[in-house]
Design a protein around this nucleic acid. Structure first.
Lengths: 157, 157
DNA sequence: CCTGAAATTGCCGCTAA
DNA sequence: TTAGCGGCAATTTCAGG
């Protein structure tokens, strides 16, 4: 896991597509699909893992099935952009597991957060007690997910 | 993969945590970690897969390493909320692989899209030629990702 | 292609309602 | 007693050299 872009040929891309579609596919089967034998196929996978192209493997858990039916996107503006304030805010985000993704953004608001919660009460607790009290937070704007039309999926390769 | 919420005990949750952390972990090892033998552990995994708790397994590909360094969140408002218009819009979204995630939202804007692109030109092409011409689209507002602080990660269980 | 390890399945035993 | 759950052991398939 390091460095910049490495070059990928068509076979690498096929491997990535297959692994995005099924992260637990057997290497043997995958090799067959991409027209390789298992050994070189595995070598390519390892190479992409080490280059950070494949960041990790994960089971995609449906939040609505595990008691987390509330999802929100929250835009956050900081009052200060001093490095120290930003760093403290980042640490505060790291510590909250409700925040499943966080991005620094261009434009009016400084951050975009993706948050899950078990109910509105839990969400309110997070928004009012945790988020608004994080270092430097000036303003937040929450929008709730009504329906996931296209759940986080594969990157086009 | 169907139905509503099934009940999960502490062992199920441990399994989910481990599988979110490493989607390719060997069942044998996982079983050991959660204090079971492989057979019941695998049975629980299968049960959660079938219940849709585990939606799928995937390799997490870093878009910046595969030539897709531009990411944006786009809010979209439709001019009509007629079911037919919305359905056509949903289909149009499905067809665009740049759209890696899409949600119907509460509040001012109707949708939130997560979009990846190879460069600003490609993004502009998508935004102007594709998105703005999708059925019913009235207004869009794009914000670009400057940095992923917390890349899409595990749901807290 | 080969060897050890893992996944999977059948079968049995235990426990609680 | 029966439904549910866990474990052992045998078999098939896979990972990695």
């Amino acid at each position: 896991m390091a460095k910049s872009t490495i070059s990928l040929d068509e076979i690498d891309r096929r491997i990535l597509r297959a692994l995005q579609q099924d992260g637990r596919i057997a290497v043997t089967l995958l090799a067959e699909q991409v027209g390789l034998s298992a050994t070189p196929c595995l070598r390519r996978i390892r190479r992409m893992e080490e280059a950070g192209v494949i960041a990790r493997y994960t089971a995609v858990v449906d939040p609505t099935r595990v008691g987390l039916p509330i999802q929100a996107f929250v835009q956050v503006a900081l009052s200060s952009h001093a490095e120290e304030v930003a760093a403290a805010f980042h640490r505060a985000l790291e510590a909250r597991s409700e925040v499943v993704a966080a991005y620094a953004m261009s434009g009016g608001m400084d951050y975009m957060l993706h948050v899950v919660a078990s109910d509105f009460e839990a969400y309110a607790e997070f928004a009012l007690k945790a988020l608004l009290r994080m270092p430097g937070v000036k303003e937040t704007r929450s929008s709730f997910v009504l329906m996931a039309l296209k759940p986080p999926g594969a990157v086009p390769i």
